[in-house]
C-alpha cells in the first residue's frame, strides 16, 4: 500500500444537483505514467478536479502520500506536491511566459538546472520567455502549462488531455518530453489519443459513466485487441 502515491477510495462527486462520479476507486503507483481513458463526458476531468479539491467529494476518501486530502483547500493540496495541468491549460494570457513560470514556483526563484532542462525540452519557452502568453500558439501554451508543472519538484502531476488540438508532429515531441519528465515524478494522464496514451502509459484505468470500468497494465491492453475493442469502442461511441 505504501507504494501508492495516490489513492481514491469510493469517491462520489456531485456537480450542482447532478451526480457525476459514482464511486471511483483508483490506486496510482509511485513513479511512471498512469493513464485515465474514457469517452467524452465519462468523468475524467471531474476526477482530476476532485483530486485537486476544485470539486468536493460528497463521500469517499482521497489519500496522497499518506495525507488525507479529501477536504483540504486546493492551495494546500497543491503545496503538498501535486501539480495540475487543466484541460484548458490555465495559462495567464496577460502575463509573460516568465511570469507564468514564476508563479508556479513556491520560492519565487528559479532553479537553474530545472530551467535549463525545461528550455531543452521546450526551446520555445526560452525563445518567448518575455512575451505575453496570449501570443503563444496552442502547442506552445500546452508546453508552458507543462513547464509550470515541472519548474519545481512535484511528486504527482495531473494532466488533462494535453494532446487536444495538437498537430501530430507536436504530439510526437510531447511523447518524448513526457518520457523525460516521468523519470523523476509520477504522472496521472487523462487522454483520448490512444497512440499517445499507449506510448507512454504504464498502467491504465478506464472510466465510464463516473465509474472505473477497467484497470490494468497498459501493455496488456495494447496486446489484447479484443479488450481494446470492447473498451475503446465503448470509449469512442459517445
Amino acid at each position: 500500500m505504501s507504494d501508492h502515491i495516490l489513492r481514491l477510495d469510493d469517491v462520489h462527486t456531485d456537480i450542482g444537483q447532478y451526480q457525476i462520479l459514482h464511486g471511483i476507486s483508483l490506486n496510482v503507483p509511485q513513479g511512471g505514467v498512469h493513464v485515465l481513458l474514457g469517452r467524452n463526458g465519462a468523468g475524467k476531468t471531474t476526477t482530476l478536479r476532485t483530486i485537486m479539491g476544485l470539486w468536493r467529494a460528497r463521500t469517499g476518501a482521497i489519500t496522497f502520500n499518506h495525507h488525507d486530502i479529501t477536504n483540504l483547500h486546493t492551495s494546500d493540496i497543491a503545496r503538498l506536491g501535486i501539480a495540475y495541468v487543466p484541460e484548458n491549460m490555465g495559462i495567464f494570457g496577460g502575463l509573460t511566459v516568465a511570469e507564468n513560470m514564476r508563479l508556479a514556483t513556491h520560492s519565487d526563484r528559479f532553479d537553474a538546472d530545472r530551467l535549463d532542462r525545461i528550455h531543452d525540452l521546450f526551446p520555445a519557452m526560452k525563445k518567448f520567455w518575455d512575451r505575453p502568453a496570449w501570443a503563444l500558439s496552442g502547442g506552445q501554451k500546452q508546453m508552458l502549462a507543462i513547464s509550470r508543472a515541472i519548474i519545481e519538484k512535484r511528486d504527482l502531476i495531473l494532466i488533462d488531455e494535453p494532446t487536444k488540438g495538437l498537430a501530430p508532429a507536436i504530439i510526437e515531441a510531447m511523447i518524448a518530453a513526457f518520457r523525460e519528465i516521468a523519470q523523476d515524478t509520477t504522472i496521472l494522464l487523462v487522454e483520448q489519443n490512444f497512440h499517445f496514451a499507449s506510448s507512454l502509459g504504464d498502467s491504465v484505468a478506464v472510466i465510464d459513466d463516473g465509474r472505473i470500468s477497467h484497470h490494468g497494465e497498459m501493455a496488456d491492453l495494447v496486446a489484447d485487441a479484443d479488450l481494446q475493442n470492447r473498451l475503446l469502442s465503448l470509449s469512442m461511441s459517445a
Partner: peptide, 24 residues
C-alpha cells in the same frame, strides 16, 4: 512585485492561482 503578479493572475483565472498553491 510577486503580490501584484498574483493579483493579476487571479483576475484572469482564480482557480489556477489556487491550483498553483496560493490562497486567493
Amino acid at each position: 512585485t510577486r503580490l501584484g503578479l498574483l493579483i493579476r493572475a487571479g483576475v484572469e483565472n482564480r482557480e489556477m492561482v489556487e491550483a498553483l498553491g496560493f490562497r486567493i
